[in-house]
Each structure stands twice: as structure tokens, then as C-alpha cells.
Amino acid sequence: MMLHNALDRYHDRPSSIHDLDPRVKVVVTLLGIFSVLLLPDGAWGAYFLVWCAVLAVALVARLGVGLVLRRSLVALPFALVAITLVFTLPGRTLFTLQLGAWEISASDAGLVRFSSVLVRSWLSVQMAILLVATTRIPDLLHALRHLHVPALLVTILAFMVRYLAVLLDEVTRLLRARQARSAASAQGKAGGSLLWRARVAGNMTGQLFLRSLERSDRIYNAMVARGFRGQYVTINPHRMRRRDWMALGLAFAALTMIQWLGRTLS
């Protein structure tokens, strides 16, 4: 049950953002990320405007600023990959570090590039968070279908998210059962050899695989029992209203303006 909460990225609130057509939200999110990533390095003013826009949407959607900020930190560890930029890009030397035999120096150009990569990434993550926090998964799938993502792929995704919770529950039970039986004796070292541990993990994986396979057979039976004959049909009730078009236009205008500002100011 606890897992279900972790799975739920959607926050049910009565808000005009939640109410928008999911297509609009998907398109605006993608355009937004695209636009942020197109901003030049060091366009701090434009970055700030984007952040303000993100916060504004979070407030209108009644999500609260805290939620978006907290979740947006997930991708930051990847920053480690880019930190080398600070020391490898040529530019004015800011400071020098002594690392054993080497001396490495940080450049101002490197620092600007590194921080820009980080900020753009952080803003993009927040947009993606807003999308899933205000759009139910089934609506998201409908939007993908409307946006001409192939039907087979969307159907697989639909089955996947439906059974993700079920299988994560199953895997949690397996892990718990392993944990319950992993005792260490007072003298011996716990856990057995590497191969043995790998084998236990592999057995669990194999077990989960077979259970999943059997489950998919039962699901197939349940589908056939209700008339499934190879073609998956759903009701897809979304219709673009005037306010959806208006929201789309507004977002597009805002993104264009920020892009223009970012390019002229820097």
C-alpha cells in the first residue's frame, strides 16, 4: 500500500491547470523544455522568468512551491558528470585546486557553462513534475494517443502502468521474504558468496518473471472472455475547448517572449 503512494505522482486538486486538456499540457511541457534548453548560457534573467512561470503554474494548480522544489532535486546528482566543465573550459582562472600531483584550475567560462547546464536541467525537471502532478495517468495516455504515438506502444504503456503497482507489491514481498531469512550467525560472515547472492537475486527475478508471465495469460483470458479479438478499443473522451486553445496560445506567447528576452539580454 505504501508503494502506491510513491507511485502516485498525480495530486488531485480542483484547479484550472488540472482541468486543461491533457494534450495541451503535454505539448506545452515539451515546448517549455525545448525552449529552456535553447536558451543561451548565462541568460540568468530569462532563467529567472522561466522559474517564475513554473512557480506561477504550481500556485495556480494549488500544488504548493515546496512539492515541486522537493521533487526537482532528483536529477541533480547527475551534475557530477558536468562538473568537469568548470576545470576544462578555457577562460579566466578563478581558483586553483591542488590534487596530489596535479594542479587544476577553475575558469569563469567553465563555471558559467556548468551552472547554466544545471539550471536549465533543473527547470526542465520542474516542468515535467508539473505535468505529471496535474494530469492523471490515463489522461496522459489518451493525450499520447491523440498526439499520434503508435497505438501499440500506448496500449503496452497502459498495461504497464496498470500492473506496475501489482508487480511492485509482489517484488516488495519477495524482498521482504529474503530479508526475513537473511540472518547472520555470530561467527560467520553474513550473506554467503557473491555467486550465491547473485543466484538468490536471479531466482527472485526468475520467479517474478514466471509469475508475470502467468498473470499475462490470465489477463489475456479475461480480455478474450469479454470479446477481445486482437484489436484493442478504448473510449477517448477528450475534446479541445476554447480555454484549452487559449492556454496553448498563452503558453506559446510566454515561451516566445522569454526566448526573445533571453537572447537580447545576454
Binding site: 501499440l152 496500449t155 503496452i156 504503456l157 497502459a158 498495461f159 504497464m160 502502468v161 496498470r162 500492473y163 506496475l164 501489482v166 508487480l167 508475470s212 508471465l213 498473470r215 499475462s216 489477463i219 489475456y220 480480455m223 484493442y232
Partner: peptide, 9 residues
């Protein structure tokens, strides 16, 4: 169809 969905999960 259900097989691939469940396998992805």
C-alpha cells in the same frame, strides 16, 4: 499485447 505490458512492468 497484455504480455508485453506486463513484461514491461
Amino acid at each position: 499485447i497484455p504480455l508485453m505490458g506486463v513484461m514491461a512492468a
